[in-house]
Design a binder for these strands. Structure first.
Length: 882
RNA sequence: GGGCGUUUAGCUCAGUUGGUAGAGCGCCUGCCUUACAAGCAGGUGGCCGGUGGUUCGAGUCCGCCAACGCCCACCA
């Protein structure tokens, strides 16, 4: 006998172990299948911990994967982790710092060993947490972005792109993070408005008392100024173009140049040009052939250069800003300091203010790659769900900028480029070359930089499948993959890179569908973040509520439009209750079908409730498959909840109690209970894998060792019966109406009552007459009179209406006239307003003319019903008054 | 400056070919009915952000406005 309440914590770990040890997540469990289906996991950071975003993302993937596996497809979910360059290296550096060491103390080799140790130590953490989430990737295929195969893929791709001229090395302004001391890409920087100042500084014009006032948000960069630009159409300054101004505090002379870029309306209309520390100035500098003077070093400190005031040299850029301001003020160059709000770029990872810095880096020329991906989008080879993300993807791809891929880190894929010590040329090879390809010198040294983490992530859908070996069996069987599931925040970082690389390296889109889900927010709608301290730990939540309840909650909150999800604790609570409900429905069923035979359901011998539940069940099956195919997971979860709880439990199981006592029905009822329960377990399994498995193991006559490989139910259309549905639903509505009356007068549920039902409509009468046993069972009737027409009026009866029918419950002596008048009066008000609206429509000539016939008919019959109900209530009110 | 999303019952949210509103929680009432009190039954609760339009008919389509949120953009 099953325990009274479902205890997820007690069963979940054992079940996971059962799946894994039986290797049920391997595609080979459906070995003979022609159909293939594959997903690659968005590899979580190897040193990371599972957060709500992962939980949602992986639950969705697991639902899709489990469904396909149960459909019998050869299904692969490729798992793995990401080495996450900056994130991982920073952690190890921080740990070293706690010991008073830096990476330089260890040296590159020893440091990398330390990072590997750390990564290996962490590897089980995140994958263990994924297991706790119940997901079903093929762990035996687990990959790592820095493993041998992925590394080979990275070097191969790099060489391919380099040879094609799509990777180049050059000196440009990059986003420099002074904390990690590395370049980062454009999309790794985030801009936010911050309060600051606009400094106006006077640059004396050479040879005369005139002063040219520039406006800047970054006075500390002035030492790197090489010119002042004004708009050539600006009458205030036009005459100064070609002249020189003095760069305050330095004794330097710099030219005034004319450039249309300068906005005459902003600031003073004069722009200081610092090519080495501002991307726009860099462009202007190139255009005017200006030298770039680097005055801030990689740590963000002012360089030790002789033209810079001694007091400023070596200062951090923000201290230098203050010091410079002070110097300018004391020497009379500072004109004004205005409050100014402007956008400040910060490194996504470290939070440091980005220093635009001129430096030599590796870049991917992305335009040609993006073009291929865009063409594929045009051809419809890839689609986004929800569709609106297509536009974002398209816009970004269309305006794509070259991608800075080199990072001044040690942890990652070291760039497979070797510099020649003799001729200075670069040799790019997949394996380390012995000599320079250009001059044959043996003095070759590998480029010290590593690649952006997203470079290897971009190859993930095929590097994990064995590429560059295009004969690898996984590559042949499972590439391209089918669907990619992720959050919108990494469409540019990852999805775009995968499509670009996919087309370039394999000639194919790496997936045909990109399913984008919303962000998980806290119950107030705030973004969850460690710094805000509002994160909810999925693993803790699972421990507390059970994995299935949690997964149900997440799934039921997913919307068709992919909106962000506010994770309300109520919903998780509900998921837990739902699991318990399933548990108890199973408990009841199993208790009562111990001796069930293994014969098929005798469809020639079905009660009306039998036919009803089989019809509803098959409808649910049909819808479940359709919703799965359409990625409508929220609707799926809610539909199954409704069917299981309100359909199966509330009505069929209750009615089965009666049928089980009747010898001629018991055997078939047991078969039906088992059939529907087995179906429910399979239907719900992709969402709630543990409880469905736990119960599955206890089912009599089951064919499959695990529900995870049992066939997903397919609808038996022959059992879907709209007539029986409507008729039984009508009777159940009547049950509710009678219960309502009973409740109104506090009739104890054990007390049987007499009911008189007036059913003038033939169709309704047919339903009620055929369903009187149902009525009887659900409302404990002492006596039921079903009449076509009431003869006389029963005194002291409480009344209700359903359809065209009148329900009378004679409750002699108990009737409270006041209460009854009030109750019927309320009902009347509602009916009257509905009647009024219906009349209005039915008397509207244009409505009758233009509305579709079925709508007119529907209105007509509803009006009929409303009129009848009003009449009945009027009669009852009259009888009460009399 | 562009673009996107959200605005429906006290709360969290469904509502996809336009036919006048649903769920869960909460609240109120009655029940320990032999699967489940983590439950059962009954009930209360909404001019669907505002405004104009298309239509016989709009939560649902279109325009404008408002609030909140997000993304993108080199104005120093």
């Amino acid at each position: 006998m099953l325990p009274k309440a479902y205890e997820p914590q007690a069963v979940e770990p054992g079940i996971y172990e059962f799946w894994e040890s039986n290797r049920l997540f391997k595609p080979e469990v459906n070995g003979g299948s022609e159909s293939r289906f594959s997903i690659v996991i968005p590899p979580p950071n190897v040193t990371g911990t599972l957060h709500m975003g992962h939980a949602l993302d992986n639950t969705i993937q697991d639902i899709i994967i489990r469904w396909h596996r149960m459909l019998g497809h050869k299904t692969l979910w490729m798992p793995g982790t990401d080495h996450a360059g900056i994130a991982t290296q920073s952690v190890v550096e921080r740990n070293l710092k706690a010991k008073g060491q830096t990476k330089y103390d260890l040296g590159r080799e020893k440091f990398l060993e330390a990072v590997w140790d750390w990564a290996n130590q962490c590897m089980g953490g995140i994958t263990g947490q994924l297991r706790r989430l119940g997901v079903s990737p093929d762990w035996e295929r687990q990959r790592f972005t820095l493993d041998e195969g992925c590394s080979l893929a990275v070097r191969t791709a790099f060489k391919h792109l380099y040879d094609k001229g799509l990777i180049y090395r050059g000196e440009y302004i990059v986003n420099w993070d002074p904390v990690t001391q590395s370049a980062i890409s454009d999309i790794e920087t985030e801009y936010e408005d911050e309060d600051s100042f606009l400094w106006e500084i006077a640059y004396p014009v050479a040879g005369g008392g005139e002063r040219l006032v520039v406006a800047t948000t970054r006075p500390e960069t002035m030492y790197g100024d090489v010119a002042v630009a004004v708009n050539p159409d600006d009458p205030r300054y036009r005459h100064l173009i070609g002249k020189a101004v003095e760069l305050p505090l330095t004794g330097k002379q710099i030219p005034v140049i004319g450039d249309e870029y300068v906005d005459t309306a902003f600031g003073t209309g004069a722009l200081k040009i610092t090519p080495a520390h501002d991307p726009n100035d860099f462009k202007i500098g190139l255009k005017h052939n200006l030298e770039a003077v680097i005055v801030i070093d990689e740590k963000g400190a002012i360089k030790n250069l002789d033209f810079i005031p001694e007091a400023v040299r070596g200062l951090d850029r923000f201290d230098a800003r203050q010091k410079t301001e002070a110097l300018l003020e004391s020497e009379g160059y500072l004109v004004r300091k205005l409050e100014h709000r402007h956008r400040v770029g910060r490194a996504q990872r470290s939070g440091a203010v980005i220093e635009p810095l001129l430096s030599k880096q590796w870049f991917v020329n992305t335009k040609p790659l993006a073009d291929q991906a865009l063409k594929a989008l045009d051809r419809g080879e890839i689609r986004f769900i929800p569709e609106r993300w297509t536009k974002d993807y398209l816009r970004w791809m269309t305006n794509i900028q070259d991608w800075c891929i080199s990072r001044q880190l040690w942890w990652g894929h070291q760039i497979p480029a070797w510099h020649c010590g003799d001729c200075g040329e670069i040799t790019v090879e997949i394996e380390a070359p012995e000599k320079c390809a250009h001059c044959g010198s043996g003095q070759v040294r590998q480029d010290p930089d590593v690649l952006d983490t997203w470079f290897s992530s971009g190859l993930w859908p095929f590097s994990t499948m064995g590429w560059p070996n295009t004969e690898a069996s996984d590559f042949r069987d499972f590439y391209p993959t089918d669907v990619l599931v992720t959050g919108f925040d990494i469409i540019f970082f990852w999805v775009a890179r995968m499509t670009m690389f996919g087309h370039e390296m394999t000639g194919k889109s790496p997936f045909h569908t990109v399913y984008i889900h919303g962000l998980i927010r806290d119950e107030k709608g705030q973004k969850m973040s460690k710094s805000k301290g509002n994160t909810v730990d999925p693993v803790e939540t699972i421990e507390k509520y059970g994995c299935d309840g949690f997964r149900y909650a997440l799934t039921s909150l997913i919307t068709y439009g992919g909106q962000d999800i506010k994770l309300a604790i109520d919903k998780i609570e509900l998921g837990k209750l739902f699991a318990n409900k399933i548990w108890n429905a199973a408990r009841f069923t199993l208790m009562n079908i111990e001796d069930v035979d293994d014969q098929p359901i005798d469809t020639a011998n079905l009660s009306r409730m039998d036919r009803w539940i089989l019809s509803r069940y098959n409808t649910a099956v049909r819808e479940a498959n359709a919703m799965m195919a359409d990625y409508k997971f929220g609707e799926l979860a809610n539909m199954l909840y409704e069917f299981i709880w309100n359909g199966f439990c509330d009505w069929y199981v209750e009615y089965a109690k009666k049928q089980l006592k009747e010898p001629e029905q018991a055997a078939n009822t047991k078969r039906i209970l088992l059939h529907v329960l087995s179906g429910i377990l399979r239907l719900i399994h992709p969402i709630m894998p543990f409880i469905s498995e736990e119960i599955w193991q206890k089912l009599p006559h089951r064919q499959d060792m695990s529900v995870s490989i049992a066939p997903y139910p397919q609808a038996d259309e022959g059992l879907i019966d709209d007539t029986i549905n409507q008729q039984v639903d009508f009777v159940l509505e009547m049950v509710r109406a009678i219960r309502s009356v009973r409740q109104q007068y506090n009739v104890p549920h054990q007390t049987a009552v007499c009911v008189t039902i007036e059913v003038p409509e033939p169709a309704e009468r047919e339903a009620v007459v055929a369903g009187d046993e149902i009525l009887n069972h659900f409302v404990k009737l002492e006596k039921i009179d079903i009449l076509e027409k009431l003869n006389g009026k029963p005194a002291q009866a409480a009344a209700n209406v359903v359809g065209h029918s009148r329900i009378l419950v004679p409750l002699e002596g108990i009737i409270d006239v006041e209460q009854e008048l009030d109750r019927l009066g309320k009902k009347m008000t509602g009916l009257k307003s509905e009647q009024e609206q219906l009349y209005k429509m039915m008397s509207n000539f244009e409505f009758l003319e233009r509305a579709p016939q079925d709508v007119v008919e529907k209105n007509k019959s509803r009006l009929n019903e409303v009129n009848k109900q009003i009449k009945i209530i009027e009669e009852q009110l009259a009888s009460l008054a009399g």
